[in-house]
Amino acid sequence: MSEFYINVVLQGVLLGGLYALFAIGLALSVGIVRLVNIAHGDLIILASYVLVVLTQSFGLPLWLSFLILVPLMAGFGYVLQQGLLRHVTDKGMLPPLLVTFGLSVIIQNGLLEGFGADTRSFSGGALQTSTWQLAEGIYVGALPALTLLVAVVLIFAIDRLIYGSHFGARLRAVSEAPATAALVGLRVNRVHALALALVGATTAVAALFMGLRMNFDPLSGPGRLIIAFEVIVLGGLGNLWGILAGAILLGVAQSVAGAIDVRLQVLAGHLVFLLIILLRPQGLFQRS
């Protein structure tokens, strides 16, 4: 019996890896560009459909498609900021929210128009089916474990980029005081666009692992956005490792509730989120 719950919790932790992948990009948008991007989930779904096109229409292998997808999404993020979002980035609360909200609806219905409402997923061969036995009766799937590993590596890499590089110093400067950054000659729009390129690259990673682990359809974006949002609020903004903690908490809550009654899974995640903002509105892992 206890093995059952160890497995359930372990699966929750691994699910947290996927949720962290959803959330990293949103955390960067919020942290650097101060943009709560309502279309963040839809960007992930858009990236997934690009993978669908590359693998199915062009017949490319998944790994190669992914290598193409990363720069494509990075470029898309860059263009999105330079072409559209920069006009609303410093215009207060409503314009950026409403523009990304409109974008979200456009992406969803554009995908619906182009691909229909069928659910999709990617096949990853043995990766999806192999499991490892950690101890007597305790198993982890290779794919969920890889997802978590990728999330950890990605967070580590982005943390090093932001806190350990010259480019990262620019990102932090622009995030901390955009007006001062402009005053000393930083090209704030370009830095924002590069940040959105980074966001785009992370959506490519999120799209790959999401499509390997679960079904998606053109309207799956809002669900991903809500999870990403819950993760960054739980994790506390301004702390990349908090994302991982928030994601794991959400994953475990869903996994445990799902083991009790599968229909409770999503609800339990939301309830844990609401409970925690009631008790600690600054997030669980906010520094200071």
Partner: peptide, 10 residues
């Protein structure tokens, strides 16, 4: 509708 409202915001 989405496109028009984005345009309106801009």
């Amino acid at each position: 509708l989405g496109g028009v409202s984005v345009a309106v915001m801009l």
